[in-house]
């Protein structure tokens, strides 16, 4: 051991079109472990499309996503294609099997991850961690609120600890207190993961994220780190987003 390992997610020239409309026009970027990236983009810019391409829900038209492993001093020592298993994906609209209770889903999820990762807690302890009340644990997920479902989805990646975590505008459905708890939690676990967090709420991005990446006109572009807490930051981001004005204006959200 001794030497620190660092993971990187490298996107190369990712392309995706729907019909005649090109949503991703060769998006490329390298994300690093230990940081929370805020993926900013206007409605319909292609944030969800990019996530779906990475998670394998959509097939890309071109480009690749690689997971690199670097050891301090030795440089890159492993290059793998990003596999769906390496991703924890929290959807905007949480999708869970509604015929199970929260407890049953979590037990099932822990079961199938046994042997792959170290399971540190019992089902109930995980619920405690997410502050899901005991009386809610044995109700059908069908009756859960949006926020509760999102909490369950977050528990999934806390349990399976995939290298890459994609969060598609999840905090918008949380109330103030839960949102604060979730932010705290993400900061706690970030050192072991590459976390990409999509949102169109600028304040949320600046508040939670270490780096801001803008998806505009089908490509990814990083906001200079120095800018992040400067006065001109907002103007700069607006400028970057409006560069793709024609894009944003003509595109509807892809379904």
């Amino acid at each position: 051991m001794g030497k620190e390992k660092l993971m990187k997610l490298e996107l190369k020239d990712i392309k995706k079109s729907f019909g005649e409309k090109q949503v991703l026009k060769g998006a490329g970027f390298t994300f690093e472990q230990g940081k929370i990236y805020g993926l900013l983009g206007r409605n319909g810019a292609g944030k969800t499309t990019l996530f779906n391409c990475l998670s394998g829900d959509l097939e890309t038209d071109g480009g690749e996503a690689l997971l690199l492993e670097e050891t301090e001093g030795d440089g890159i020592n492993a290059v793998n294609r990003l596999m769906p298993e390496s991703i924890g994906y929290v959807f905007t609209t949480p999708i869970l099997p509604e015929f199970l209770t929260g407890y049953e889903f979590l037990k099932f999820f822990i079961d199938i991850n046994k042997g792959k990762t170290r399971i540190e807690k019992t089902v109930d302890e995980y619920f405690d961690l997410m502050k899901i009340e005991p009386e809610d644990r044995h109700r059908l997920i069908k009756g859960y609120s949006h926020g509760m479902k999102n909490k369950l989805q977050m528990l999934c990646f806390i349990i399976s600890r995939p290298p890459v975590i994609l969060l598609d505008e999840p905090l918008t459905s949380f109330d103030v207190i839960v949102a604060l708890e979730m932010k705290k939690l993400l900061r706690e676990i970030k050192k072991d993961h590459i976390i990409i967090f999509s949102t169109h709420i600028l304040q949320l991005a600046t508040d939670l994220c270490d780096e801001i990446v803008v998806l505009s006109n089908g490509v990814l572009e990083q906001v200079d780190h120095e800018m992040l807490h400067s006065k001109e930051f907002e103007e700069k981001v607006i400028e970057m987003l409006s560069d793709g004005k024609s894009m944003g204006a003509e595109s509807g959200e892809q379904k």
Binding site: G56, E85, P97, E98
Partner: peptide, 15 residues
């Protein structure tokens, strides 16, 4: 409708 439509969104279920 009640099971696969949601679980198929997860990569582990598509193995």
């Amino acid at each position: 409708y009640n099971c696969d439509i949601s679980l198929l969104r997860y990569s582990f279920y598509r193995r």
